[in-house]
């Protein structure tokens, strides 16, 4: 039997996940994820909306939050601080790649 081909999905600004999907994928209690939203570590498309949706890229951040919470025994605020540094590192790495492209 030939194994079916599975589609890989881009986790970009276009694809969207619901709050429920994010909670299920992150593996953190819902109230802790709400704290991360409150601290700005996770950003919904429309924070004022009655039901939040998120760009799919926040799925990776939510999973990282769960790992960091569990493995470093940090409270949600500590997790949000670590996530901000990880995000900064990713941005810097992307800038370096972009500069290499432009400068040749």
């Amino acid at each position: 039997m030939i194994a079916p081909v599975a589609d890989a999905v881009c986790l970009d600004a276009i694809a969207e996940v619901s709050w429920t999907e994010l909670v299920a994928a992150a593996g953190l209690p819902e109230d802790e994820l709400r704290e991360l939203v409150r601290y700005g570590a996770l950003v919904p498309r429309d924070p004022e909306a009655p039901t939040w949706t998120f760009e799919a890229r926040w799925l990776v951040v939510a999973k990282a939050a769960s790992r960091i919470r569990r493995d470093f025994e940090l409270d949600p605020y500590g997790v949000s601080v670590v996530l901000s540094y990880l995000e900064r590192i990713e941005r810097l790495e992307a800038e370096i790649r972009a500069l290499h492209a432009r400068l040749g």
Binding site: A3, V5, A6, A8, V9, C10, L11, R97
Partner: peptide, 22 residues
């Protein structure tokens, strides 16, 4: 662990993709 997957066009260096259920 063997997986056959279709990568969409236009992916970029450093990007992350998800293959659900694999």
């Amino acid at each position: 662990h063997r997986v056959k997957t279709r990568i969409p066009r236009g992916v970029t260096d450093g990007e992350k993709l998800r293959v659900p259920g694999k």
